[in-house]
């Protein structure tokens, strides 16, 4: 017993150091693992509040860009509405059956108050939290494409796992065929992501558009992502496909968070299937 006490007093700093280091390393490992709630996150009121204050100043310098983005999006949406008017005139006797109408997604708005794009595991912070209906695992997009998936949520803030994150895998498909693959990031250029697991049967060429596929319960199908920049073929499969995003990931401001209203239903179905 005496020896034990001696040992502890002799190495007390080393033991203290070891204890703290183990805490730090376990927090790091927890942070690197996919889909685990993260204890260390910037969605708390101190860091969220500070980021919000900084963003209020920085926002002014980017108002022109954000205005252009909004104008672009408005034009695109107006064009979609205009096309649909033409379609409905064909069905003169068509009656909208409201009982069959099911809204699948709900869009809410938020602002990016902190944006990381230079690390391997990048996160963004948004200025909306559980008070505004933000929950874990919701899609974050803007007018030009996908941004990420919500991760830790506090009352007023939330963190978003960026698509520029080692853990991020987003189901995407080609816009001109139904072949799908996953979108990942190799950590090099923050505006170029990699499309993997695309079957060789899919004919691609440089400049083809990539959109989100319908297989993800988080992202709605058909959200623009980017265009194919270059690709390589090896042993009768694609060795790499680089996708240039429509977004500039270093300059994103206003975003939409998408609530998937059918998510629980799909989840229960899939869980039931997994039990067999």
């Amino acid at each position: 017993m005496q020896q034990l006490v001696n040992f502890i007093t002799k190495y007390k700093y080393f033991l203290f150091f070891l204890l703290l280091e183990i805490i730090a390393l376990s927090l790091t490992i927890q942070n690197h693992s996919y889909h685990k709630s993260k204890f260390v996150n910037s969605a708390n009121f101190v860091s969220g509040g500070i980021y919000n204050r900084i963003n209020k100043f920085r926002e002014f310098t980017k108002l022109r860009t954000y205005n252009d983005q909004l104008l672009e999006e408005n034009t695109r949406l107006k064009n979609i509405i205009a096309q649909q008017r033409i379609d409905t005139t064909d069905q003169v006797f068509g009656v909208t059956d409201t009982t069959k109408f099911n809204q699948r997604y709900l869009f809410t708005r938020a602002k990016i108050i902190d944006n990381q794009y230079h690390k391997r595991y990048n996160y963004l912070t948004i200025d909306k939290g559980s008070k505004n209906g933000i929950l874990f695992d919701q899609a974050v997009v803007n007018s030009k494409g996908i941004i990420g998936i919500t991760q830790s949520v506090s009352k007023n803030f939330a963190t978003v796992q960026s698509i520029l994150n080692e853990n991020s895998r987003i189901n995407v498909s080609l816009s001109n065929s139904l072949h799908f693959g996953s979108l990942e990031w190799d950590g090099k250029d923050y505006n170029v992501l990699q499309l993997v697991d695309l079957p060789i049967q899919a004919n691609i060429k440089i400049g083809d558009s990539i959109i989100t596929g319908g297989r993800s319960i988080i992202f709605p199908a058909g959200i623009p992502v980017g265009t194919i920049e270059d690709f390589g073929v090896e042993n009768n499969s694609y060795s790499f496909i680089n996708v240039r995003l429509f977004n500039d990931m270093s300059a994103i401001g206003p975003v939409n968070v998408i609530v998937s209203l059918f998510k629980e239903e799909i989840n229960t179905l899939e869980e039931a299937r997994n039990e067999y």
Binding site: K12, Y13, F16, F17, L20, E21, I23, A24, L25, S26, L27, T28, I29, Q30, N31, H32, K38, V40, N41, S42, N44, V46, S47, I50, Y51, D114, Q116, K119, Y121, Y123, T125, T159
Partner: peptide, 29 residues
């Protein structure tokens, strides 16, 4: 003792802002 604790906390607070787990805490400690 106090130095170790303070450096751990300094790193951890920076990790909170950067969403980086315990990376800065581990290195600073």
């Amino acid at each position: 003792g106090i130095l170790l604790l303070l450096c751990f906390l300094l790193g951890l607070f920076i990790d909170f802002f950067l969403n980086s787990g315990g990376i800065n805490a581990a290195a600073t400690l």
